[in-house]
Amino acid sequence: MSRDGRRRADAERNIEAILDAALESFSERPDVSMTAIAQAAGVSRVTLYTHFPSREELLARVLDRAMSSAAVVLDAEALGDGPAVEALSRLIRSAWHILAGYRNLMTAAGAVLGARQVRGYHKVVLQRVERLIARGRDEGSFRTDLPQAWLVTVFYNLIHAAADEVGAGRLKQRDAANVLEATVLGALTSPAPVGRTGR
């Protein structure tokens, strides 16, 4: 291997080590320092800042990696199988399990990147939610009286609200998945037709 090739390989290994360490570090402590991340990755601060000149850039890459991993996990749920309502239940529980592990990462990202940018990184996951909601609307399971994009937003906001409530101690971790599933399904499923009252 040429000298340039070795340098590129070393740089790629350093980047992977930094991203792995940053994901674990931010997931444990949203306020973790760049110095602590460099130490966890086994690289110098100079090396860290060479590849990621700012906390914002590092968080963006870590969040992108986390959401790509989340998409792989959700795909394993075979969301195209069975009725859409059942698939949504599986998706809610899987998504909650993922978010619970990344709650501190989301706190760190929200503080540095802002809510709009953070949602943008969720696109890879929300596209799967959108496809499932569209299928459920076609099946007659999910409501069509509200815009589809709004239903995706409801899902996104409710799952993050649950994470906030758990973090604040107002919702118990062991109850969160059940509460979230009941709330999301209640919001998205078609309302039962109101019967006419006879005289």
Rank of each mutant, 00 (worst) to 15 (best):
G169Y: 13
A108H: 01
V129G: 01
G82V: 05
E56T: 03
L79E: 06
V184S: 09
V166S: 06
H122P: 04
E181R: 11
S33L: 07
S44A: 07
V112N: 06
R196P: 04
M1Q: 10
T183P: 03
S33T: 07
D10M: 12
A40K: 11
L132A: 06
M106N: 07
A84T: 09
T144R: 15
Q173F: 14
T189L: 05
R65H: 00
A17M: 01
L58I: 00
D31Y: 09
L132Q: 01
A100G: 12
P193Y: 03
V179G: 02
V72E: 14
R61P: 01
R170H: 12
S25K: 00
L88I: 10
V152D: 06
T35K: 12
E130Q: 15
S69Q: 15
R170S: 13
S44W: 08
R6D: 15
V194W: 07
H160C: 11
G80C: 02
A70D: 09
S68L: 15
V32L: 10
E12M: 14
E181C: 05
V166G: 08
K172D: 11
A41P: 00
Q148K: 13
A87N: 06
V46M: 05
I159G: 04
V166P: 03
G140E: 01
L91S: 04
S54F: 01
D20N: 13
L91R: 01
L19P: 00
K172P: 00
V46K: 11
A21Q: 06
L171Y: 08
F26I: 04
L158P: 02
V129N: 01
L126K: 03
L126E: 03
E130F: 08
H122G: 07
T183Y: 07
E56F: 05
T153S: 09
A11L: 12
A115Y: 01
P30D: 10
V85L: 11
A176P: 06
A163Y: 02
L79C: 02
S68G: 08
M67S: 10
R128W: 13
G120T: 05
A41K: 05
A87S: 11
E130I: 06
S33H: 06
P193A: 14
A149S: 15
P53N: 05
A36K: 11
H97R: 15
G5Q: 15
V194F: 03
V73P: 02
D4S: 09
E24Y: 14
V85G: 00
V166T: 00
E56H: 06
S54I: 07
V184I: 15
G82D: 07
D175Y: 13
V85I: 13
N157K: 11
R6G: 04
G186Q: 04
R137K: 09
D164A: 14
L23G: 15
A60K: 00
T183C: 08
P83V: 03
L113W: 08
E86P: 05
R3N: 14
Y121W: 10
E57F: 01
H51W: 10
L158A: 13
A134R: 13
G5Y: 12
K172Q: 11
P53I: 06
D75V: 10
A134T: 14
S33I: 03
G110P: 07
H122E: 10
L91G: 03
A78C: 12
R3A: 14
Q173W: 11
V179R: 12
